[in-house]
Simulated assay, not measured.
Amino acid sequence: MSKQRILPLELSDTAAKTGGRKWAIYGVLAVVVLLVIAYIDGGEEPIRPIEQQIALPQAGGNSINSGEE
């Protein structure tokens, strides 16, 4: 005769299926909520040009490859 081991954290089949289904529903609801927030808050914004002056190095300055030895 073999003894059947029952673990305290072991769930029955119906409890495991119900718990898994519950988490799946929560996951789907979370995704839907995030999509609704993204739809309301998001959207395409117009492209703004970046207008900022930058300093460029002068041509013919002291360069490593200037040809002078």
Rank of each mutant, 00 (worst) to 15 (best):
A16Q: 12
P49S: 05
I25K: 14
K22S: 10
P49W: 01
K3I: 09
R21Y: 13
A55Q: 10
A59I: 07
M1N: 11
I47L: 06
T18V: 15
L9R: 09
A55E: 12
K22H: 11
A16C: 04
G20L: 04
K17W: 03
W23P: 01
L7Q: 10
D13E: 12
E10P: 01
N62Q: 10
E45D: 10
V32T: 04
P8I: 08
A24V: 08
I47Q: 08
K17R: 09
A15W: 00
G42R: 00
G67R: 00
E10M: 06
G19I: 10
I54Y: 07
I54R: 09
S63T: 14
L56Y: 05
V28I: 06
G42L: 00
R5E: 15
V31S: 01
E69S: 13
T14W: 06
L11P: 02
L7D: 14
L11I: 13
E68S: 13
K22G: 07
Q4K: 09
P49K: 04
S63F: 06
A30P: 01
A15Y: 00
G19P: 02
L56D: 02
E45F: 08
A16M: 06
R21F: 13
T18A: 13
E69Q: 14
V31W: 09
M1W: 10
I25V: 12
A30R: 06
A55S: 15
Q4Y: 15
P49I: 02
G27S: 02
L34T: 06
P49F: 00
S2F: 12
E68Q: 12
I54C: 02
L9Y: 15
I54N: 05
V28T: 05
I64V: 09
P57L: 02
E69M: 13
G61S: 05
N65W: 08
I54L: 11
G43T: 01
G61T: 01
K17N: 08
L11W: 07
L11H: 05
A59H: 10
G42W: 01
E10L: 07
G27L: 07
V31K: 03
K22L: 10
D13G: 06
A15N: 07
V36Q: 01
Q58P: 09
E51I: 11
A30N: 04
G27M: 03
Q53T: 15
L7C: 08
K17D: 09
G61Y: 02
V32F: 02
A16I: 00
I40Y: 06
L11C: 07
E45N: 07
E10F: 06
E10G: 05
G27Q: 01
A24L: 05
S66H: 04
I25E: 15
V33A: 12
A38M: 04
Q4V: 15
I50A: 13
K17Q: 07
T14L: 12
A59N: 10
Y39N: 05
E44M: 04
A55N: 10
I37M: 05
I37W: 02
E10K: 06
A15P: 02
G61A: 07
E69P: 11
I37F: 04
K3L: 13
P49A: 06
R21T: 15
R21S: 14
I64E: 03
D41G: 09
V31G: 01
R21V: 14
A38F: 04
V33C: 07
Q52V: 15
L29S: 10
Y39T: 03
V32E: 02
E51Q: 11
T18C: 12
R48T: 14
R48P: 03
S12A: 06
R48A: 06
R21I: 11
K17S: 07
R48E: 08
T18E: 09
V33S: 04
R48L: 08
